[in-house]
Design a protein around this nucleic acid. Structure first.
Lengths: 241, 241, 241, 241
DNA sequence: GATGAATGAGGATTCATTCAT
DNA sequence: AATGAATGAATCCTCATTCAT
């Protein structure tokens, strides 16, 4: 009866060209499978492979958002089969969460370091901080991670929570400490920043959002903006000169 | 009409993960049709009906984001049949865009008014502006609109563009004008705000984002925060006391 | 930008010809979509439509078992779109359970009726019962339902339970009552059937199983078999003559 | 070998419904790999290994049925790698068929032996037979084998056929012979059992099915039931006392 | 205009099978 | 021989959209 002869019709060739031609959303770009198809690409370190998937996922999720992202595209970009994703991640959501886990932790490390340098003038601390943000976040893929946290966070309480726990709740006290020290040294006449360390983080959020929404239309002079914000932060309040 | 020839533009289904009742995301909420089904929708003005749809859409889109939002839910919430949506909007995307069109225009009007009031001290202008934001945006559904602009904007260039055109590009020059006047009056020692009127808008963005992500975890003292930011804006730069 | 022009590649024509050519399992037959495709078959009473789906489901489930059955095939056989199934049934399992609900209830009605006819000789009661089984179950699609209960029951505790509750637990006492009456009239010398009314149901199970497994190889003379079983049931035990 | 050209025979995935942990079906159980993973499978005789696989397969197939059974689970239970299964069995189906081959042959041997013992009273022969069934089938894993034959047989004509050839077609003539001898000795007043030796096998089928479906709900007094059936078999027909 | 049943393309996920090691 | 990571076809289910009433 020929077991091997049992063959069934297939269709195989799958339209992967992610809806190019759509003019309203996501104008151009959009995922392009590198088409590198080693028929059995054994001997790739699993960690590398996982990283490849995460990299691909970052691109795809950033481009389309969680819901619209297609794991097909992630797999294609990562150069693996669809099923392979599930060897490394339980499901789409787990992939997404792992992707965002530790999104901005490097910044945290830097801020911690700054908090350990008590004698630095506040202005300089801010310059270092914002400089670091520009070089290590804005200029890299981490920008996309942070953007995803901000844009998908409302729909993923767990991710928002994790971000709060891992980043925000640790960063703010550090900033507070730095600000307090500056205030103690007389560098700040008001405790506004001490009470609201978020004032230091504001331009980071603003920059990420502006970049995501308007950079194509009207790029922001980010260094200038950050400098301007810094100047505000270190200013003396009116009437206290 | 030839069934096989029917081609439709879509983008996709919905991942299993987002089902209602899922405890990890979107805790409860889940849209609940008011089920008010007068068997005769007697004399409902089309404009009213359209508004009902838009209201429903705002809730649903805000709750789930564009992709995950179900028109079924919108229709149910609006108390109309699903097909009815298509009498008022070409498709899901058109509904979404119309929803966001003019998202925050009321603020614009207010800022315009402020710009016409040349003699007001800058501090007071800011208080009025931020107060208006709190009462007319943060405390209302418009908060959701603005949130949607910020979170979905990256995936909807047209919406970002419209928002830039309708709101941002009009607001910033007004602020600039106000700031310039304040500077001219010697109220500001630096032209930072004149060069970067975004500095005035920063706390609005920050507040919207914080509200969307962390309000459940750690509510922000919004009035205090806005006052602190205001104080910064009107501060004298260091060394100029 | 021409919304209507947004068209994307498709593949459409789907291989529906369910694995014909498979020689080891399910030799021949196998689902054949009637291909009647009214492009919008409105105006079919919903009850009718549901019944069409249930009928199709019966065939497909009986042919392949629950797990291997494809809802694609059910839909094709029912002449509806895949999505339509979900208008009538929550999911595959719900369809399956509803299909089996009340599988053999008509028999129950008949047995009840027989139990209300006290004066009938036991032999005649059995003839009526088995005759009814032959005509109303074995010769109809209900045979497949009963077969499904027996073959899928072990994997579907809920279905087994429902069958026990709805059919078995009601039938056995009725048989018991009938048997008791027969015993009281001296028609039976032993209380074996009274204690084990299952003895009456045995040939029904045996017949269904034989039919499912061996009818192609060696058909069973069902009427003869049932008569033989009946003779056994009404016999006098040894040594009590 | 050309990835795109690779065509494989399969039949399908697995519906969401049947996931482990699902409370509605297959209450708990869910296969649990003993996780004994000697890093060196030192000297395990291939025959032993094969038997381990078959044992594991029996459990898994019995628990979920052929389609829903996962080779992953079989491998885990057998303590081998998934690929190893394919060293011993061509594919899932071959494993299943080998598993069921000779399912109940031990009984056959016993019946043969009984058929060679001409002088035993029929009642005693039945007691031995049913006793053997209880001890060697019902109380052991062979129960699961027989259950699988009955429940999967309808979908596996080859298995049904093999079972008929190997077991049924050999057993029935033996029973017939025994029954004939009993009849010749005047132990039976009718030739019903001679014409339908299935009457002897009935309670075996009934018992297996009852056990599979209802044992949790309402356990059957198997010994009593078998004795009752035996009494029926050796009874004198009415009117011949 | 309104309706809502019907549609069917699309995507997440599973799992038998392969094959480089 | 044994392994188990990788593959990708297959299937369930969803939901935007249509259109007969």
């Amino acid at each position: 009866m020929g077991n091997t002869a049992r063959v069934r019709e297939r269709r195989s060739g799958k339209p992967k060209a992610a809806r190019a031609g759509d003019a309203k959303r996501l104008p151009k770009a959009v995922i392009k499978a590198p088409a590198k198809k080693r028929s059995r690409p054994h001997k790739v370190a699993p960690a590398e492979r996982k990283q490849a998937i995460l990299n691909a996922a970052l691109t795809v999720f950033a481009e389309r958002g969680f819901e619209a992202a297609r794991l097909d595209d992630v797999a294609a970009r990562a150069g693996v089969a669809k099923g392979t994703l599930y060897l490394y991640f339980k499901d789409k959501e787990a992939l997404f969460e792992e992707l965002l886990r530790g999104a901005v932790s490097p910044i945290l490390a830097r801020v911690t370091a700054l908090a350990e340098t008590p004698d630095m003038p506040f202005a300089q601390t801010l310059d270092l901080l914002y400089g670091f943000f520009q070089k290590e976040v804005l200029a890299t893929d981490r920008k996309l991670l942070l953007r995803l946290v901000l844009t998908e966070g409302p729909r993923f309480p767990r991710i928002a929570e994790a971000h709060y726990r891992n980043v925000v709740s640790r960063m703010l006290p550090l900033i507070q400490k730095i600000a307090q020290r500056a205030a103690d040294r007389g560098e700040l006449a008001s405790d506004a920043v001490v009470r609201f360390p978020q004032l230091v983080a504001e331009p980071i959020i603003t920059t990420i959002i502006w970049d995501a929404l308007f950079s194509k239309i009207k790029p922001l002079d980010v260094p200038g903006f950050l400098r301007a914000h810094r100047d505000m932060l270190i200013a003396k309040p009116r009437g206290q000169s």
